[in-house]
């Protein structure tokens, strides 16, 4: 605004969980400085059920503007608007972001007991669809991240399951060959 900078927003989402470690990590001066250096101007945090409240800032002192809220029915609008998304490892927000084709950093919550969620984030990171981080490594991750290296997420295809179910029950395969034409 003031310096004619185009608005580039980072959207942080924890979904319906409580993930203070992530909210506190993005609220540190170091992380905000790295985001500013990368050209991001605004930081919007959806803090969910957490109790850590980030410091609001208008960003008029030459740093990112910070705003936050707890929940919103229109998360999708924020995802659409954002230039970068930093999310918890919930599969809902992961796939919603990937389908929008937005660059995504997933931060794994190590405090969860049965943490199979990190499996999905790590697998998708290995396939270069997103970047995986921990709260304590978030600053390093943002500093070193190369969003150009990320690969688009291919659309899902449920026809193999449907074909197997069909074949198992003894239905002819015709309705699928029609679809392929």
């Amino acid at each position: 605004m003031e310096s004619g900078l185009t608005r580039r927003m980072v959207f942080v989402t924890v979904g319906t969980t409580c993930f203070d470690a992530l909210v506190a990590a993005v609220d540190t001066a170091q992380v905000k400085e790295q985001l500013w250096k990368k050209g991001y101007t605004h930081l919007l945090i959806q803090m969910g059920r957490g109790s850590y409240v980030p410091t609001k800032s208008l960003g008029d002192d030459g740093s990112v503007a910070v705003d936050y809220f707890t929940f919103s029915p229109s998360i999708k609008d924020h995802l659409r608007e954002a230039s970068l998304i930093i999310s918890h490892a919930g599969s809902g927000s992961i796939f919603e972001t990937l389908r929008l084709g937005k660059p995504l950093v997933v931060v794994v919550n190590e405090d969860l007991m049965d943490n199979h969620q990190s499996e999905l984030a790590e697998e998708l990171a290995e396939r270069k669809h997103l970047i995986c981080a921990r709260p304590q490594t978030l600053c390093e991750t943002i500093k070193n991240m190369d969003l150009e290296s990320l690969l688009p997420y291919p659309p899902a295809d449920a026809t193999p399951v449907a074909q197997l179910i069909n074949g198992f029950l003894g239905f002819p395969d015709d309705s699928f060959s029609q679809k392929l034409e």
């Binding site: 809902g92 796939f95 449920a158 399951v161 069909n166 239905f171 309705s175």
Partner: peptide, 19 residues
């Protein structure tokens, strides 16, 4: 629930409904 139901709907989309 949530993500599970979304996956199920994706499967039902391609299942031949009339069968």
């Amino acid at each position: 629930s949530g993500g599970h139901t979304a996956e199920m709907i994706n499967l039902l989309e391609v299942l031949p409904k009339e069968r």
